[in-house]
Nucleic acid binder design. Structure first.
Lengths: 344, 344
DNA sequence: TCGCATGATGTAAACGTTTACATCGCCTCC
DNA sequence: GGAGGCGATGTAAACGTTTACATCATGCGA
C-alpha cells in the first residue's frame, strides 16, 4: 500500500517509483510502464500527508463563508469548485456563523491544512483577520472592505446600484427612495453609495430618501410603513436586496398601492423567486459563480507566482434585469447606460 | 515555527511540547503553562500533514455531491458543516458533474486525504463506487440505492409521496396523476413507489396515471400537454418535485384550468419559491440540513467505532405543507395520517 | 541510609514521501 | 582503448509530528 511495496514488487527503488509516477524526472520508458502497471494493480494511492510534509503544498484551499443559506452559497461554491478542479485544487469549506470568536477558531483550524484562503465575511473588518492569520498564508477576500494586506474581489455593488438608480430615473421616476442594508455591511454600504452618487450625477436636486433596513424581508415591510408616515410617498422604491423588495411589495399591497402603476419597485441580487412574484421584480443580477471562480483564480495565481501585483481586482459586474415592477422606461436612448438582460 | 522552535525557546524537549499542547500525557503544570505561553507567543501552529502522517487521521471528511445548484446543496452542506465542526472535522467538498469518469477522478483525488466519505450521486449505482474505492475508507451514502457494502441515509421519499397521495385522496381527489422524475434516479423511483402504493392502499380501483418527467420545469409543462391528449383529465396532479409542479402550473394556466378549483396540484421538496407562487403550492418539505447532519454523524460514529451495526438508517422524514394549490380536505379525521405543518 | 516505585522529562524511531547527491554502466570521442 | 560525459537508477536525508522507551530525580518505606 505504500511506495515501498510498489518499489519492491516492481523491483526498483522508491525513488524510481516516485519519479515514474510523478512523471517528473527521466525514467526509462520500460521501467515507467512496469511501475505504473504495478501501482495500478496494487491500487496504490500516494499518501498525501507525507507528500504535503515534504513538498509543503497541500493543494487545498480553505473557504470561509458566513452562514450558509440560500442559493447564493451553492453558486459561490460551484464557481470555486469548477476553478479549483481545473487546477487540481481541493476546497475545504467552513462556515463562520457571524461571531468573531468562531471565525478565529475556523481560521486557526484551517491555517495549517491549506495553501491559501478565500474569505468572505462582509460584516467584519479585514484588519482583524491579519492578526489571526500567518501573513505568509495567501488570502483573497471576497466582498469585504479592501485592505492593503490582502487582495480583494467584489461584486460591483456600487456600479450595480448606480445603474439601477439610473434606470429608475430613465423610467421617469423622480422621487426614488432607497431601503438600505445593515450598517457596516460592505455590500450594503457600496449599494448605498451607488444610489447616492447616481442621484448626484443624474438627478441633481432629487432628494435622497434613505430608509434603514437589514436585508430581511421584514425590514422592507417596515420601511414602507415608515415612508408612509412622511409627508409625501416616493414614486419608486429601490431596495438594497430582493428580500427587502418582497417585504416592500407586501406592505405596498396591503396599503392599496399598485406596483408599478402607483409606485415603482426594484431590488438587487435576482434571487430565483424574483421572477415568480407578482409583478416580477426588476433587479440586478449578480453572477455569484463568477465571483467564486474569479476569487479562486486570483488565489491560484498568487500561489504560483507569489508576487502580488494589484491588490484590488476589477469587480464582478452585475446585469440589470428589467421585469415589470417598474414602469417602462421613457427614453430608449438611455438603454446604453447599463447592460441589459431580457426578463425570462 | 515548528515544534522544535517552541521546545528550544521553552527550554524543553519536543516531546514535552507535544504532550503539553495535546493535553494528553502528564506534564507539570508549570511546564505546561510555560510551553503554552511560548507557543502562543510564537504563533505556533502544528503542521497537520506531519500529524496526519503519524496518527493516520486527517480529520477531514470528503463530500461528493452532484452538480451544485440551488438551495438544496447549501442546506446539505450547512447541516454537515455544523455536525462536522462539533466533532472537530473538516469538509472537503467536491462536485461530480454527472459523468462517471469524473466521479471516479474526484473519488481518487479525495481518497488519500480524508478519513471518510459522504457520497450523494442519485443517478449512480453504488456498486461501481466499491470498485474505485479502498474498502477500508468509511463511506456513507446519501439518497442512493442501499448497498450491502455501505451504510446509506435517505430522505423518506417513499413515505412522503405516500403521505401526499393520501392527502390528495383525503381532499376528495379521485383521479390523481403523477409526474415522475428521471428514470434510474433513486429519489424519483422512491417517490413513484410511494404514489403507487398509496393508490393501492387508500384508493383501490383508482387508476395510476404516471407521466414521464425529468425533474425540470419544462418536463412538468409537457406532462400537462400529454395529459390533455388523454380522454379524460385527472382532477389532481402530483409532481415528483416542485420545479415540475411549476411547469404544470404554467401549462394549466395557459390552458384555462384554475388551480385548485378545476384541478389540484402538489409538489415535493418545498423549495423557497413554492410559497410565493400563485396559488402557493402544497408540497412535502424535506429537511435537507437534517440529512446532511445525520449522514455526517453516522460517518463520525463509524470512524470512532469501526464496527458497522446497521447499514440502512432510518430515513429523514418529510413534512406535509398544506397551502392552497389543493382543495380543502373533506374529512378532518384523516389529519392524523401525516404530520402537518401550517403554511406560512 | 539504601533500594525502589513513581512521575516528569528526554531520546529517538517511525510515518511515507521527495529529492539532492552518489553510483554505475554505457556510449562517444579522441 | 581509455577518458569523460551523460543518462538511468539507487541511497539516504529531510519534512514535523507522535509516542514507546530510557533516563533521571524525588520521595517513601524498610
Amino acid at each position: 500500500m505504500t511506495i515501498k511495496d510498489v518499489a519492491r514488487v516492481a523491483g526498483v527503488s522508491v525513488a524510481s517509483v516516485s519519479r515514474a509516477l510523478n512523471g517528473n524526472d527521466n525514467v526509462t520508458n520500460a521501467t515507467r510502464q512496469r511501475i505504473v502497471s504495478v501501482a495500478a494493480h496494487l491500487r496504490y494511492m500516494p499518501n498525501s500527508a507525507a507528500r504535503s510534509l515534504i513538498t509543503r503544498r497541500t493543494h487545498a484551499i480553505g473557504v470561509v463563508l458566513p452562514d450558509l443559506h440560500g442559493e447564493f452559497f451553492s453558486e459561490l461554491i460551484r464557481g470555486m469548485d469548477c476553478a479549483a478542479r481545473a487546477r487540481g485544487l481541493h476546497l475545504l469549506v467552513s462556515s463562520a456563523h457571524g461571531s468573531q470568536r468562531e471565525t478565529i477558531e475556523v481560521l486557526r483550524a484551517l491555517c495549517g491544512r491549506v495553501d491559501g484562503l478565500l474569505v468572505m465575511s462582509p460584516d467584519t473588518d479585514a484588519s482583524f483577520l491579519a492578526e489571526h492569520l500567518p501573513l505568509s498564508l495567501p488570502t483573497v477576500l471576497m466582498n469585504m472592505r479592501s485592505d492593503h494586506r490582502f487582495p480583494s474581489l467584489s461584486i460591483d455593488n456600487y456600479g450595480g446600484a448606480r445603474t439601477m438608480t439610473r434606470h429608475l430615473f430613465d423610467c421617469g421616476y423622480r422621487r426614488i427612495a432607497f431601503v438600505a442594508g445593515p450598517a457596516l455591511n460592505f455590500d450594503a454600504d457600496e449599494r448605498l453609495r451607488g444610489y447616492r452618487d447616481a442621484l448626484t450625477s443624474f438627478g441633481p436636486g432629487m432628494p435622497a430618501l434613505v430608509m434603514p433596513g437589514d436585508f430581511s424581508e421584514d425590514s422592507g415591510y417596515r420601511a414602507v410603513s415608515r415612508l408612509q408616515t412622511g409627508k409625501r410617498m416616493p414614486d419608486a422604491i429601490f431596495a438594497a436586496n430582493d428580500m427587502m423588495a418582497f417585504g416592500c411589495l407586501s406592505a405596498l399591497g396591503e396599503r392599496g398601492f399598485r406596483v408599478p402603476d402607483d409606485i415603482g419597485l426594484a431590488g438587487f441580487d435576482d434571487v430565483p423567486i424574483a421572477r415568480f412574484i407578482a409583478p416580477p421584480l426588476t433587479t440586478m443580477r449578480v453572477r455569484i459563480a463568477d465571483l467564486g471562480e474569479a476569487a479562486l483564480e486570483r488565489l491560484a495565481a498568487q500561489l504560483e507566482a507569489p508576487a502580488q501585483p494589484e491588490l484590488a481586482q476589477a469587480p464582478v459586474s452585475c446585469e440589470l434585469v428589467v421585469r415589470t415592477s417598474c414602469r417602462q422606461r421613457l427614453r430608449l436612448a438611455s438603454v446604453a447606460a447599463g447592460s441589459l438582460v431580457d426578463a425570462k
